[in-house]
């Protein structure tokens, strides 16, 4: 890789004690380097530690040992340079849509007219201009995700962490949001943000990622670059190479593959 390293996990471990007293190692000696601008999908079965890894990078949790380095600086706690979209709805119900999108900018002291301009721009890009004055409870689940995505992009963080953001959405909405996300990530003329996207959906990972990191029992089980050209569609994802990768991923998830390449 020629590009600058953005994130580095160095022998990261996260252990904790469950309520029943059992000792659990959620993340077990993970080392991983993510270059700037790369779109990485973390995939693996439930409980493999992929969400924990994201929480650690967000600074909402701290590793038991090891370190996480962002642009040569070890992270200690959350920060706006690492925006996060959560699996559940995290849009503040007591703020109108536009105020939600502006919130990060407000925290950083951006003046009102400037942050309104930025927020409106991102709301337009996710197709929500018409609901900027609405309350979140008036929006559908898919629209709430668009608000959350607009809020983290508007906040300008270099790193975006998405923790199964579309897991609860229907198939059509999910595919629409893939397009929204990729359009924001791959804006012509702008620097690509570095993305870590947790999912357990193989097709989602293949659609989005430059690289798929497979986790199993807290460890990295595989690390697969996805060379398919962008923008990707059902045809570009139907090449023999991609199908072979898909079978490999399904096998990692413990699923029997049923295709000709199995």
């Amino acid at each position: 890789m020629t590009s600058q390293r953005m994130i580095e996990f160095v022998h990261v471990r996260r252990e904790y004690r469950r309520a029943d007293g059992a000792h659990v190692t959620a993340v077990d000696d993970v080392s991983l380097i993510v270059p700037e601008g790369e779109f990485v999908c973390l995939i693996g079965p439930s409980g493999c530690g992929k969400s924990t890894l994201l929480q650690l990078l967000a600074g909402l949790d701290a590793p038991t040992s090891g370190s996480i380095v962002l642009k040569a600086k070890e992270i200690e706690g959350p920060g706006p340079e690492r925006g996060m979209v959560f699996q559940r709805d995290s849009v503040f119900p007591w703020m109108r849509v536009i105020d939600n999108v502006e919130y990060g900018l407000k925290c950083r002291g951006v003046r009102a007219p400037e942050r309104r301009r930025i927020a409106r721009d991102y709301l337009a890009r996710v197709g929500l201009t018409h609901v900027e004055g609405a309350w979140p409870r008036e929006l559908s689940g898919g629209m709430l995700k668009r608000v959350a995505i607009a809020a983290v992009f508007a906040n300008g963080g270099e790193v975006l962490l998405l923790d199964e953001p579309f897991g609860a959405l229907d198939y059509v909405t999910r595919r629409q949001l893939h397009d929204v996300l990729l359009a924001l990530w791959d804006t012509p003329g702008a620097t690509r943000r570095t993305v870590l996207f947790v999912t357990h959906d193989v097709d989602e990972a293949l659609t989005l990622a430059d690289r798929i990191v497979v986790m199993h029992s807290g460890r990295i089980a595989d690390d697969i670059p996805i060379a398919a050209m962008r923008p990707r569609n059902d045809d570009t994802l139907a090449t023999p190479e991609i199908i072979a990768i898909k079978h490999k991923l399904l096998a990692h998830l413990g699923l029997q593959t049923k295709g000709a390449h199995a």
Partner: peptide, 22 residues
């Protein structure tokens, strides 16, 4: 739900903002 405080923290809110805004 702690998700609101977590979300505010990742957007750059400090302790004072957590109380006032969340």
């Amino acid at each position: 739900d702690p998700i609101y405080e977590h979300s505010a923290l990742t957007l750059g809110a400090g302790p004072r903002r957590l109380i006032r805004d969340i």
